[in-house]
Design a protein around this nucleic acid. Sequence first.
DNA 1: GTTAGCACTCGTCGGTGTCGAGTGCTAACG
DNA 2: CGTTAGCACTCGACACCGACGAGTGCTAAC
Lengths: 366, 366
Amino acid sequence: MLLNDRKFKILQAIVNDYIETAEPIGSRTIAKKYSLGISSATIRNEMSDLEDMGLIGQLHTSSGRVPSEKGYRFYVDSMMKSRALSVDEALFLQRMIIDNIGHAEYMIQETAKALSRLTNYPAIVSEPFLKKTTIKHIQLVPLDEKSLLLVLVTDTKTVKNQIVNLPSDTRSSGAPGYETLTRLSAILNRHIAGKSIRDISRDIIDKMLAQFAENAHVLMPVLGIIADMIKAEDDVRVYTSGIKNILAFPEFAEKSKAEAIFHALEDRESLFAILDQGRANFARHQANASREGIQIIIGAENTLDLLKACSLIKANYTIDNGTGCIALIGPMRMDYTQAVSVLSGILQNMQQVIEALGLRNEVQNQ
Amino acid sequence: MLLNDRKFKILQAIVNDYIETAEPIGSRTIAKKYSLGISSATIRNEMSDLEDMGLIGQLHTSSGRVPSEKGYRFYVDSMMKSRALSVDEALFLQRMIIDNIGHAEYMIQETAKALSRLTNYPAIVSEPFLKKTTIKHIQLVPLDEKSLLLVLVTDTKTVKNQIVNLPSDTRSSGAPGYETLTRLSAILNRHIAGKSIRDISRDIIDKMLAQFAENAHVLMPVLGIIADMIKAEDDVRVYTSGIKNILAFPEFAEKSKAEAIFHALEDRESLFAILDQGRANFARHQANASREGIQIIIGAENTLDLLKACSLIKANYTIDNGTGCIALIGPMRMDYTQAVSVLSGILQNMQQVIEALGLRNEVQNQ
DNA sequence: GTTAGCACTCGTCGGTGTCGAGTGCTAACG
DNA sequence: CGTTAGCACTCGACACCGACGAGTGCTAAC
């Protein structure tokens, strides 16, 4: 699509103004507000052309013009200026890096919070989808007579723990003591560290049972819980933040619309559906792929009916054996410039934290 | 306050109807809808009396009547029937108990979810406020050359873990190995298990330093992190669920009101302020104390301006060395009967989970 | 090609009238 | 004396109307 310079400027004025005010904008207003050096009548003619091209539209005859989806698409692809982060934003992100180092578990939640806080749009962040979690280290810790604590470190340095309740009908009175547990931990590590849950064969279990000797009754509950924990680890979680921000947008003034979105953003399944739909569109709009992999999906480009009136800005991030997703939702007239710059800032931020945590390349050679 | 039987029934009809419909109700409607066997004119006379007593009011002359705060108070104190849980509700709670056994950490979040799900009111649940967390067990787990994992079990069986990054300028190359860490863990346990962070004296640290010998450089980072973790443990967290439900109430139709509540329910500080205000009111309305310690705070009885138009139903729950709080928020015309029965069901539920986790009396004698 | 002018459209806003639900008061009834 | 029917009155909700203004398209003149 090719636009002459004047049409370009007028379209830009319309989109910017609408992003800011959410009101249809007329020719006279453009002439007054933006000094383009042409009269409102000329602008009217140009606007008429832009409407013919499908870039703008009007809600009814004789209201001002509003960008169409195609108009937003054009704006995003061709006239959006990339903006550097403001000092405040950059400082905020810096602080976040510092706070998060050493807290891999919270980083993802914090990222969602930061995103919505900086942009005032609802944010969604999913944990990385890992191909196959492997066990890095196991430790049994004594608790009391009837139970012990199982601590599990996975190859992503995620740490899980759970209480193991021992069967009460065991011969030996009570749980094994500290020294015994240390010995049992060593046996467990020798046999299953570095393996995924599928790799634990009957053969290995038998060997361990033999070595556990009089403590054999401890092994099965422990293995069962390890399996559960690894399964839970393979379950990707999603976090949202700033959902209430949608109340501030006039396009969601009707409570029913706001409620529909609220509902979707509280439900795990629909969150995944939202994040997932990017894939189909990715090929279609190559222009965005260039922007550090940040995708912008506008209005009806969304495959979910629920989002037909919204825009979605999303990107993937990578931890060496999996990728997660991070996204912002807003009305179609969202401030793409700001949202994209913040999102790309956060992506860099996450990368730094991930590197600081040493998750990058050292995991395989444990 | 004494009401004759007819006034009693009329007031009950007004409150019930208003809870259900959120519309002012007139004498004719009462006569038709509730078969009290008296005419609308008689009802008008009685309503006039009820208004003089301050139990009901009207928004403007010639609109129907609406319960006043005093009216709700009377309703809650004298005419609310206690209702048994429905089969569905009971089953839902049963399931929750099963799911939560062994997951002390999630129980509180799950409780908030269950509350809001069963009542359709926003729920707030705070973690127990513990007087002084003590260390029950410490375990050091090897991770890699530069770091190790510290696992801490406290007297509430909460388990925390954090990665300890060792100073890189240490003489000995890399972190201690598995056997060494096991030995160091034993030293730590011998000296500080059963103590709170304040009890760890300079003297104890010196002794441990001596025993750590060539691994002394590991001790200080570890102790620093233990202090942080205990401090974080003493920080009570609060969870909310179902905030979006307020959108369904006509009294929050104006977005600005809904937004104010949203804001308060997303902010930790104001959540505590909400939960805290019960104390002052507790003495005032003894009548409620009888209902298993469930308090009902209506409208202006709230000390927070924000809640002057709301009601709050709250209760405390106890784990042996601390108490937490659990609450529901709704419009003044909330369905007190249902809310109270669900809340009391959940309280019993929590008690069962707590007992199943063995947190009750066995903790002290570790 | 640009602009001024004009007729036309349509949503918004204030004013007006009607309708219905509600009330209080009074008088009649058992 | 308590209860009820009837009546006048109040007031919000709603529909209707006209004025106003922001906006458009079209045409003619510059």
